[in-house]
Write a protein that binds this DNA or RNA. Structure first.
Length: 191
DNA sequence: TATGAGATCAACT
DNA sequence: GTTGATCTCATAC
């Protein structure tokens, strides 16, 4: 088994459709809390579900910058959601982190989420950011430096794809990816 | 198990 | 004024 390697910015400097499935099984830590990525979705500026579809605004400015940075936005006025910016600067594409399997910093995450149920810690984009302590204060941070720590996956895994969820535009694009058989998805995959 | 309301903010019409 | 890449809690079946 090879030793896990850190993900560098160059990892993200490719098509979102290459990066998103490769993030499944990778490890995401934020200030030492986190775990294994089990669910993500890809967003590309060419389709209307993406925040960048209608051009640059103060909120989505990070998406228009170089790959390898975090785009954090407020969702439904309450939650925070975190994306990893991909492709070249200006392409405005990103991968939304939707669920992780908690493995490190469990006590901290249980305290932040106020639940004893491990499946409710990080199974959903809003839950994930609350458990890891990610907020708007972290918008624009580099992904290859503290407090982020991203490690390449090791070993063979199976990735499943399906339709994105929680959106009303471009619902037909199968750009949701998951770790096959994981118990920590926010919702089941159809296929 | 399923549906509905409330929380509350940035962008857009 | 409305909508949305959401979650929780309450109430109903």
């Amino acid at each position: 088994m090879p030793k896990p390697r850190k993900l560098r910015k160059s990892f993200f400097d490719r098509s979102v459709h290459q990066v998103a499935p490769e993030l499944i099984g990778a490890t995401l830590l934020f200030n030492g809390a986190g775990g294994i990525i089990v669910e993500v979705e890809a967003y590309h500026h060419s389709e209307p579900a993406a925040h960048s579809y209608n051009g640059r605004t103060p909120r989505n400015a990070v998406m228009f910058g170089p790959a390898g940075y975090a785009y954090v936005y407020r969702s439904y006025g309450i939650h925070w959601c975190v994306n990893f910016v991909c492709e070249h600067a200006g392409s405005a594409s990103a991968v939304l982190m939707r669920a992780i399997e908690p493995t490190e910093g469990l006590a901290t995450m249980h305290r932040r989420r106020r639940t004893a149920d491990a499946r409710l810690l990080c199974s959903g984009p809003g839950r994930l950011t609350e458990a890891l302590g990610i907020t708007h204060a972290h918008n624009g941070l580099a992904l290859d430096a503290a407090p982020f720590e991203l490690r390449e996956r090791t070993g063979d895994i199976e990735v499943v794809a399906g339709l994105r969820i929680g959106i009303t535009k471009a619902v037909e694009l199968p750009w949701r990816y998951g770790l096959a058989g994981s118990r920590f998805w926010s919702k089941p995959f159809k296929s």
